[in-house]
């Protein structure tokens, strides 16, 4: 066969699987162009399956600063553990926070769709909202604390600590989701943490592979 379709012509056929005409006829009878067509489909599928990226770790702080807030969103900071032997205590703290937040959430649920009635009940609802938001903020703070970013890849002990923190968060969020499976904050937290863990584990594996090649 003297000529082949250009990649642009093949790309056009991707959106018109039922099309007829010279290009389609060529494609159907040319193994080389069919191979290119299939590669293009694979590329398209891979593009549509790209995972979400992590925003910069300090993005929220910058946004908050631009919004003109100078008050800590969570009030008291939760101190970070400084040892790699922290996992049981740290995980317990996360579970306790989730439990507290969910307890508030469960109390909130029955009133969410109800019409506002008295000032007193509105005030109680506000208090529960306040408590829930404080809990969520504390959990987010726990996630941000400790080693993170690319720096952890230079130090195996920091990377291991980050992995343990992520494992603890995954475990705690899965446990919490059994009680509140539709909570959007918990769901997104779990997805984010699992993504981060997979990414970190993958990077650590690659580092090990490169190290082994060097030796």
């Amino acid at each position: 066969m003297p000529d082949h379709l250009s990649r642009e012509q093949i790309a056009a056929l991707l959106d018109e699987p039922e099309a007829t005409g010279v290009d389609r006829e060529h494609l159907d009878g040319c193994s080389e162009c069919t191979l290119e067509y299939e590669q293009m489909i694979r590329t398209r599928m891979a593009l549509s399956a790209l995972p979400d990226l992590e925003p910069p770790v300090d993005e929220w702080e910058r946004i908050r600063a631009r919004l003109g807030d100078d008050v800590s969103p969570i009030g008291r900071r939760v101190s970070a553990p400084n040892s790699t032997r922290f996992r049981p205590l740290w995980a317990a703290a996360v579970v306790a926070l989730f439990a507290a937040g969910l307890g508030v959430g469960r109390q909130l649920s029955p009133t969410e769709d109800a019409a506002p009635d008295t000032t007193a009940s509105r005030s109680a609802s506000d208090d529960r909202t306040e408590a829930y938001l404080r809990t969520v903020a504390q959990i987010q703070e726990l996630r941000r604390e400790g080693p993170s970013g690319e720096a952890v890849l230079d130090d195996p002990s920091l990377a291991a600590e980050r992995l343990m923190r992520l494992d603890a968060l995954i475990e705690a969020s899965q446990e919490a989701l059994r009680t509140a499976p539709t909570d959007p904050v918990l769901n997104n937290l779990l997805f984010d943490v699992v993504d981060e863990r997979q990414s970190l584990a993958g990077q650590m594996n690659r580092s090990l592979r490169y190290t082994s090649v060097e030796y």
Binding site: L53, E59, I63, R64, A137, P184, V185
Partner: peptide
């Protein structure tokens, strides 16, 4: 805090 919760829920997708 509500803003941060909304941000946390959607920041990955937005970025």
């Amino acid at each position: 805090r509500a803003m941060e919760a909304l941000y946390t829920a959607h920041s990955g997708r937005v970025f």
